[in-house]
Computed example of a mutant assay.
Amino acid sequence: MLIRYVKMTFHKEKVSDFLEIFEQSKEHIRAMEGCRHLELMRDINQPEIFMTHSHWLSENDLNNYRESELFRDTWSKTKVLFADKPLAFSVESVLVV
């Protein structure tokens, strides 16, 4: 299982635009082959900072999503709202306690 985090910082006046984009795309992302979990989180002290947290069966599944028309369309609408460069990373669970 691959776990993906993407941290995004938006211009304060663009946060509602991003939330609308996410609302419109979340179920389509969840329906992508290999996606097992998707959630959106928000920083409690900096409300313009969000992080997506998703689980994928494999890196191939994540890459297929990232190469899809859905991703291209969603990302093109989202990236113009950024106040800072996004940070994305993939991890795997090593130990669950």
Rank of each mutant, 00 (worst) to 15 (best):
D17A: 15
K7H: 10
R4F: 05
T52R: 07
E59K: 15
T78D: 01
D73M: 13
K85I: 08
K79D: 06
V80D: 08
H28I: 03
S25K: 12
R30E: 06
I49F: 04
V94H: 10
M32W: 03
D84K: 09
A88N: 08
K7T: 13
V6I: 14
R36W: 06
S93A: 09
K79M: 09
Q46H: 15
P47K: 13
N60Y: 12
H37V: 01
L38V: 01
A88V: 06
Q24P: 02
S58L: 05
F22R: 00
V91S: 10
H53E: 05
E27I: 03
P47Y: 13
E23S: 13
T9V: 11
N45R: 13
I29F: 00
E23K: 15
P47W: 08
L87G: 07
D84G: 06
E69Q: 13
L38T: 05
E23A: 12
H28T: 13
E69C: 05
S54D: 03
S76K: 11
A83I: 00
R42H: 04
K85D: 08
L87V: 14
N60H: 14
Q24F: 02
H28L: 15
N64H: 10
F89G: 07
T74L: 11
A31E: 07
T74E: 10
A31Q: 12
N60A: 15
P86N: 05
K7G: 07
H37Q: 11
S68D: 03
M8V: 09
F50V: 01
H37G: 04
H11R: 12
P47H: 12
M1Y: 08
C35D: 01
R66D: 05
E33I: 05
K14N: 14
F82W: 01
T74R: 14
E92Y: 12
L87F: 08
L81D: 07
L95A: 11
E92N: 11
P86S: 05
S68N: 01
D17N: 14
F22P: 06
A31S: 15
K85M: 09
S90H: 09
